[in-house]
Design a protein around this nucleic acid. Sequence first.
DNA 1: GAAGTTTAGTTAGCTTAGCTAATCATCAAG
DNA 2: CTTGATGATTAGCTAAGCTAACTAAACTTC
Lengths: 153, 153
Amino acid sequence: MAPQDRPSPGGRKPADVATRLHSAAIHLLRRLRVEDAASGLSGPRASALSVLVFGGPASLGDLARAEQVRPPTMSRLVAGLIKAGLAEAERDPDDRRVQRIRATAKGRGLLEAGRARRVKRLTRDLERLDPAEYAAVAAALDTLERLARPAAS
Amino acid sequence: MAPQDRPSPGGRKPADVATRLHSAAIHLLRRLRVEDAASGLSGPRASALSVLVFGGPASLGDLARAEQVRPPTMSRLVAGLIKAGLAEAERDPDDRRVQRIRATAKGRGLLEAGRARRVKRLTRDLERLDPAEYAAVAAALDTLERLARPAAS
DNA sequence: GAAGTTTAGTTAGCTTAGCTAATCATCAAG
DNA sequence: CTTGATGATTAGCTAAGCTAACTAAACTTC
């Protein structure tokens, strides 16, 4: 392993911070994933549904792009969501090639419940931090959100 | 977007911080995932290989637990890695039921290259932050790593 | 306005990844 | 030496990913 690959525990250089932040995000989500089994929703379906719930109605192509997946894949994913009563689709009257897909109340409810379980667990962990640590996380949030935004480059 | 979906922008309550942190982690990784196509490794394989590279040799059961996957799934995943020359396995001499699986030099190289691409992109983004934002992220790192650790509860 | 081009989605057919159930092999206890 | 427990594999299914090829609708161009 080359020397610069060691994240140098207290490293402040951007490459070190990036390495550690990347790893922390992976492990944080992996840990929270344990809660997902309870929802009955597969990962890809939950993820697609969340785009509909938090982003509002979208076309199939929009969804495919958002999920970084090819149109045929999203086509079947959406078909599954519709069959399960979690989403519904109608033809756009202005351009009858496109579908307007949206979450149903049932879909919204299921997704919110799943997300609530993950967030609840994370909330408990945050409540156990000492005040200084908690403040550090809270203070970094705005920036983390900016880094997470698609146009962050 | 429904009103309750806005996580109360300046929210400092643990539940708000948890919601925003959760969402930021998801979107951050989704954005970095764009870099993964170049590695030629599928997500699950890359993830399993990373456990071997960063955690050292492990048994098949260890890997399955780490990846939150059933043993048969990991069995096939490992078979794929071995066939591709990225990992190798040998029987544990003390208990010949268990396999000791480890990454090969080729596997390590491939994984490091992929991770390097993701980290490089994140590094560029970090370098564009102004000093105060950058400091806030760096200051939160230790705590974020603690939250990400399996035993964080 | 008919012909060609582009764009949105779907269908067909393949591979990979996930699961459960059943099996094999080895180890540990009695 | 049998019995039971444990690590891993095999068999066989469904879901999720892909590419290639297709349909349908909407533009463009003459």
